[in-house]
Simulated scan of single mutants.
Amino acid sequence: MKKTRLEAFSDGVLAIIITIMVLEIKVPHGEQFSDLKELIPVFLSYALSFIYIGIYWNNHHHMVSTVHQVTGGILWANLHLLFWLSLIPFATGWVGENHFGAAPMALYGVVLLMAGIAYYILQSLIIKNEGKDSLLAKAIGKDMKGKVSPFLYLAAIVVSWVNPVVSGIIYCIAAFIWLIPDKRIERSIRQSGRDVEE
C-alpha cells in the first residue's frame, strides 16, 4: 500500500473525530449570553481535545512523511492509534457534561495514555521497518517528550481522584509540551535532501 492511502484514511478519521466533538456542544435554550454559562465546561473540554487531535494530526503527518514502505504491521498499528483517538470524543463529552468530575477526568487520562502508547508503537514499527539509520530514527533521537508524556498522564489520572482541576492542568501542560513546534523531522528531511544533492 502507498502511504498516501494511509494518510488519507487517517486524515479522514481525525476530521470525523473533530466533527463528532463539536456536534456534542448543544445549543442552549435561551437567547442571553448568560445561557452559555452552562456550556463553559463543555467548551473547555472540547478546546483541549481539539488541541490534542491537532497535535496528533501534525505529528502523524510528519512521521508518515518519512515512510517509504507501508507494511501490514504499520497498518494495524495505525488503526490501533486511531481506535484510541476515536474514543476522545466520548471521554471529552463525559468530562464536559459532568463538569470535570473525578471519574471522567481519570478516563480522559486513560484514553490519552493509551493513545500515546499506540503512537509510540506505530513510531517504533516504522523505525524498525525503515532501519535505525532512517530519517525518523535520526529525528526522534532520545525522544524526551515521548518519555515524559506517559508519566504526566499517569500523574493526572491519579490526581484526578483527589483534585480534578489539578488533573486538568497537568493535561494542559502535556498538551503545551507537544504544542511547541518540533522541527526534528523537518530538519532531518531537509538535511537528507541536501545530502542527496551533494
Rank of each mutant, 00 (worst) to 15 (best):
R190M: 13
S167K: 07
G146Y: 12
I189R: 01
L112H: 10
D143I: 07
L82W: 10
H62V: 00
I53E: 02
L48Q: 01
I74N: 00
H62N: 05
L44Q: 02
S134N: 14
I74L: 03
D11A: 05
A91L: 14
Y171L: 11
W161T: 09
G30N: 03
S34D: 14
V67F: 02
A91K: 10
M21K: 03
P41H: 11
S124E: 06
L135Y: 01
A103E: 09
T71Y: 00
V42H: 00
A115G: 15
G12H: 10
Q32D: 11
L14Y: 03
A103C: 11
F33I: 08
P150F: 14
G141Q: 07
P89E: 07
G168D: 06
L113F: 14
I185C: 09
Q123C: 05
Q123I: 00
Q69G: 03
L125V: 11
G193R: 07
T66M: 06
I127E: 02
M1E: 10
R184E: 10
K26A: 13
I20L: 10
Q123Y: 05
F176V: 09
W178V: 02
R187D: 05
H80A: 05
G168A: 10
V22H: 12
G73L: 06
A174N: 12
S65K: 01
N58S: 07
S149E: 13
Q69P: 05
A139W: 05
L113G: 08
L82C: 12
P28L: 11
S86E: 12
N98L: 07
S192A: 14
V67N: 03
S134T: 06
G168P: 00
R187E: 05
E130P: 04
G54R: 07
H61N: 11
Y108F: 15
D182S: 15
L23N: 15
E31P: 01
L122A: 05
L85Y: 09
P28I: 04
F176N: 13
A102W: 04
G131N: 03
S45V: 04
L152N: 15
I53A: 08
I185F: 09
L48Y: 12
F176P: 03
